[in-house]
Design a protein around this nucleic acid. Sequence first.
RNA 1: GCUGCUGUAGCUCAGUGGUAGAGCACUCCCUUGGUAAGGGAGAGGCCGCGAGUUCGAUCCUCGCCAGCAGCACCA
Length: 656
Amino acid sequence: MAETVSLTFPDGSVREVDNATSGADIAASISKSLSKKAVAYAMDGVLRDLSDPVKRDGSIELITRDDPRALELIRHDCAHVLAEAVQELWPGTQVTIGPVIENGFYYDFARNEPFTPEDFPGIEKKMREIIDRNKPFTKDVWSREKAKQVFAEKGERYKVELIDAIPEGDDVKIYAQGDWFDLCRGPHMVSTGQIGKAFKLMKVAGAYWRGDANNPMLTRIYGTAWANQEQLEAYLHMLEEAEKRDHRRLGREMDLFHFQEEGPGVVFWHSKGWRMFQNLVSYMRRRLQGEYEEVNAPQVLDHSLWQTSGHWGWYKENMFKVECADEEAEDKRTFALKPMNCPGHVQIFKHGLKSYRDLPIRLAEFGAVHRYEPSGALHGLMRVRGFTQDDAHIFCVEDQLAEECLKINDLILSAYADFGFDQITVCLSTRPEKRVGDEALWDHAEKIMHRVLEQIAERSGGRIKTAINPGDGAFYGPKFDYYLRDAIGREWQCGTTQLDFNMPERFGAFYIDKDSEKKQPVMIHRAICGSMERFLGILIENYAGQFPLWFAPTQVVVTTITSDADEYAAKVADRLKAAGLVAELDLRNEKINYKVREHSHAKVPVILVCGKREAEEGTVNIRRLGSREQNSLSLEEAVTSLAEEATPPDLRRRRG
RNA sequence: GCUGCUGUAGCUCAGUGGUAGAGCACUCCCUUGGUAAGGGAGAGGCCGCGAGUUCGAUCCUCGCCAGCAGCACCA
């Protein structure tokens, strides 16, 4: 039934066309070259097959291959070609799903024999063949019965499951490229030739069917695909650069820390790394002054305390049990290494009666915790089994919640800014299905937090992004999570503010209210860095090891050209140390080239070269990391300006 | 934890069914050289751990441990 619809074009012009007109027809009607170049079209921003009829009114845009939006199609089409190639090479391999992901795509296969990277060249060759065949993508809508029957006959049981999962009323679409076809939502480009050759298979890995660890494991092949060779190469180059700033590599190269077999997931901090760690702690500690009381709770506590907190029940597989190693020992009490600081802080709160006048009470701890993380989860400093949280617990009344949350927010944002992070997203997670605490309390708390979230956005003038994750809160209360974006665009969740309606009740914590009655306080858990170890890992990668002067573990190296100036260089180093800088003296009998190279590799921000000339003039020659420039200035000038530059940002603010 | 891969000197990596090699780093000697590698000599290894096959295992097989990638997990 032909009907006329009106289409709005990007230039604002409007055309009336038959509703059966396809995107391809429209491209052809505009120009021959567009008809050649178009790979799809967008209707009100949603991509469609070029062969799809326009059907209804809307704004239409033809998508050519070089449009950024075509990248998604290139990648998706490439996933299909990968699947065809694999089935051509290894008949009997079952196909499952093959979505587009950031920078590429993957396809999950079910096959008894797993793939290895050695298979990649063969697969890629086959893929290029399929692309050269340039078969058109054609779409068909099948009945459920037919689709299930066809795939069942082919032995594709995963596809049958997928068909069953398609919501009633949705079409079961089949896309074919030549003889090969796949169940697919689409859209696709016009033919396989449009994919081009700027793709590469990257890695092979296991992945659970439908992301559930109870399901069988499939073999996943990851690939990357781009519009052209330059983009592909730029991406591969970016990966190489990212690898160079891997904190595990820099940790070794810069001699910051190491791991070894006997201690899976626990860090051996070397002196330079520990200096950074202490720097970070000192910074955070200064930021707590006047607001928080720093405490320290025991590492090892009887398991009964963890029973009361509930951890021994539902967190047991993540806890380290501790007992006397002597089998004959009379005292065989079972202890646990603390996985969290909160129960300890509740004990401190509970010690002695607290008045409503005392609230809020803010207890902070740089608390070492141990968690038995699954072996496969361990990853350098980013995921460890022993780490230090910059943890705090605030005991307050409901009326104080909003203000406390905002205070924490200000602290988190300003701390991040001091480390150069200013692209932050604050995410509010609301009540999950499984939860404790009465509904009124959740209503109240969530209302407050929504308000606070709005205020956070307002105060930042829209600079801080906000988001809501419905149902993602902890079972004991709603929370804010803080995500920061690093120098190469990755997002890390670090800070968190969590309300807790559960813990005070479990431990029977209370304060005496105005009416002399016992009342239960509300508890807020909060962390800024989260894990100091992980935060340092993030900092290392963010700065690629080239820290700002105030945070560099070694700030200055003083070195000589010949031994004539040894005495003077020592004096320079002493002056720097007296001014509070971390300075090292390098008097080795090596050429200056060699020494500069070595200290540059160690990423020392400032090298002061002292030769005969400097010794005579009382000057130093200053060289900055990453620059070939050399500047001479008087010793006193150098010391003053370096000391100024090395002042931590919070202290500089305090000084005004 | 699951799937796959890997484990040889401090680091990066060769290599062989008959108990091992390179470069850098390290030590010593020579060299006093103006901003990213001066020259020479030397030292350094239970070839991840345990069992098996074998006359003989760093190498082949199995188990364990650890690491890497991804998945799952991170209340």
